[in-house]
């Protein structure tokens, strides 16, 4: 479970400040895909950055599995990300030198205490995850040898291989055609339910609604209650 409780985030803009996220309260529940949509510049990516602990809120609380991230040091946040959060980026952001299998294995090689046991646990799940995203036969291929949809599938598998409580997905279909986009959204929804992750999914595209359980609309950094609708 992830909760953003009355969170505000602003950026300096010369002498003034721009409020990117304004008193947002939002909860992502296990096994549920929460879609965050809104126009460009509305603050949805900033909400995702706050949820991913990549940036600290000015005020309010971000709580992941009972842990208030404001209390954590930078290195503790890195531990939180590698153990409890999965991130799927807008571009797949795969490492060019690694094969599909190694993109998943790398999650066991990110340092910190308990590397050996985490490495063993992750390696045991790699093939199952690649199979789950339909890429078992492409495990030996590097990103340049995969299509856009396949790369995004690898990225999804990478985000789930360490069994995170929270899955954060940023515009996963923006670089894909419509058919591939629907497939990716369905895959995310299926894996969210199978693995009981609390998924926050940022997208400007509200069409593939069957894959999203709840929608949140963000306008000017605020959640627009009028646009909130269960699908």
């Amino acid at each position: 479970m992830i909760t953003l409780d009355n969170v505000t985030l602003s950026f300096a803009d010369g002498a003034s400040r721009i409020v990117a996220v304004d008193s947002v309260t939002l909860t992502g529940r296990p096994g549920v895909v929460t879609g965050i949509t809104g126009p460009s510049g509305s603050g949805k990516s900033s909400i995702l950055a706050l949820a991913a602990t990549l940036i600290r809120a000015d005020s309010g609380r971000v709580v992941i599995g009972g842990t208030d991230v404001a209390e954590l040091s930078r290195s503790d946040l890195a531990v939180l990300r590698r153990e409890r959060i999965g991130i799927v980026f807008q571009q797949s952001n795969l490492l060019p030198s690694l094969t599909a299998r190694e993109q998943l294995q790398v999650m066991g090689e990110l340092g910190g205490a308990g590397v050996a046991s985490r490495r063993r646990a992750i390696r045991a799940r790699v093939d199952e995850l690649l199979d789950a995203v339909g890429l078992a036969e492409h495990a030996h291929k590097r990103p340049a040898q995969l299509s856009g949809g396949q790369r995004q599938r690898v990225a999804i598998a990478r985000a789930l291989v360490h069994q995170p409580e929270v899955l954060l997905v940023d515009e996963p279909t923006s670089a894909l055609d419509r058919a591939r986009g629907v497939e990716i959204m369905q895959l995310i929804a299926r894996l969210t339910r199978e693995r009981s992750t609390a998924t926050l999914l940022v997208t400007h595209d509200v069409t593939p609604t069957a894959s999203v359980d709840e929608w949140v609309t963000v306008v000017d950094g605020r959640i627009d209650a009028g646009a909130l609708a269960a699908v």
């Binding site: 890195a78 990110l110 340092g111």
Partner: peptide, 19 residues
């Protein structure tokens, strides 16, 4: 630098990246 940023976002420690 882009790959390093991704690894950090995924939770890599700076120490492991330096190593």
């Amino acid at each position: 630098a882009g790959d390093v940023a991704v690894l950090k976002a995924l939770g890599a420690s700076t120490r492991s990246l330096v190593r």
